[in-house]
Amino acid sequence: MSLLNENRLSKMFSSPGKKRSIYLTAGYPKLHDTVPLLEILQNSGIDFVEIGIPFSDSIMDGPVILNSHQIALGNGMTMDVLFDQLAAVRAHISIPIVLMGSMNPVYQYGFDRFCKQCEKVGVDGLLLPDLPVIEFKKHYSDFYRENNIAPVFMISPQTSSARLAEIDGLTESFLYAVSSSSTTGASSKMEDSQAYFEQLQIQNFRNPVVIGFNIKTREDIKFVSQYADGVIVGSAFIQALEGGFDPDKITGFIEGLKD
Score class of each variant (00 low, 15 high):
Val49Trp: 03
His69Ile: 07
Met79Phe: 12
Pro16Ser: 11
Gly74Pro: 09
Asp248Met: 12
Leu200Thr: 06
Val98Arg: 01
His69Leu: 08
Glu172Lys: 12
Ser161Met: 14
Pro157Ser: 08
Ser156Leu: 07
Pro247Arg: 09
Ala72Val: 03
Thr171Val: 07
Gln158Asp: 15
Gly122Cys: 08
Arg90Ile: 11
Leu241Phe: 12
Phe253Lys: 02
Ser68Gly: 02
Gln226Asn: 14
Asn7Phe: 05
Met79Gln: 11
Gly62Leu: 14
Ser21Arg: 05
Val209Met: 07
Gly256Cys: 05
Phe223Lys: 08
Thr184Tyr: 03
Cys118Asp: 11
Ile149Met: 12
Ser102Val: 13
Ser58Trp: 00
Asp220Trp: 07
Ser44Pro: 08
Thr184Leu: 00
Gln201Cys: 08
Gly74Arg: 15
Ile254His: 03
Thr78Cys: 08
Cys118Trp: 03
Val224Thr: 08
Val152Trp: 00
Ala87Gly: 09
Asp47Ala: 00
Leu200Trp: 01
Glu191Asn: 10
Phe136Thr: 02
Asp168Tyr: 02
Phe174Thr: 00
Asp229His: 13
Val210Ser: 08
Gly243Leu: 11
Ser21Asp: 09
Met1Gly: 13
Ser58Asp: 14
Pro16Val: 07
Ser180Ile: 13
Val98Tyr: 04
Ser180Glu: 01
Ile53Lys: 01
Ala87Pro: 07
Tyr109Met: 11
Leu164Met: 15
Arg90Asp: 02
Phe136Asp: 10
Leu3Trp: 01
Ile211Gln: 04
Asp220Thr: 09
Ile238His: 08
Gln201Leu: 11
Asn207Trp: 01
Gln117Glu: 14
Asp57Thr: 08
Thr184Lys: 02
Arg206Asn: 15
Val123Phe: 01
Thr171Phe: 04
Ala91Trp: 13
Leu175Gly: 01
Val224Arg: 09
Leu200Val: 04
Val98Pro: 04
Lys120Ile: 02
Leu38Asp: 03
Ile167Gly: 07
Asp220Tyr: 03
Leu127Tyr: 07
Ser182Gly: 09
Ser225His: 10
Ala26Met: 02
Ala186Gly: 15
Ser10Arg: 15
Ala228Met: 05
Ile202Asn: 13
Leu126Tyr: 00
Met100Lys: 06
Gly243Tyr: 09
Gly110Cys: 05
Ser188Met: 15
Lys189Phe: 15
Ser44Ile: 08
Ala186Asn: 09
Asp259Tyr: 15
Gly110Val: 00
Val98Phe: 02
Phe223Val: 02
Arg8Val: 07
Pro157Ala: 06
Tyr109Asp: 14
Ser181Ala: 15
His92Ala: 05
Asn147Lys: 11
Gln194Gly: 06
Asp220Pro: 00
Cys115Leu: 14
Ser68Met: 01
Val89Thr: 10
Asn104Glu: 14
Met12Val: 05
Ile215Trp: 00
Asp80Val: 11
Thr25Cys: 11
Gly169Trp: 07
Ala177Thr: 13
Ile40Asn: 00
Ile238Ser: 08
Asn5Ala: 15
Gln199Pro: 13
Gln203Asp: 02
Gly74Ser: 14
Leu128Glu: 01
Gly234Thr: 02
Asp229Lys: 12
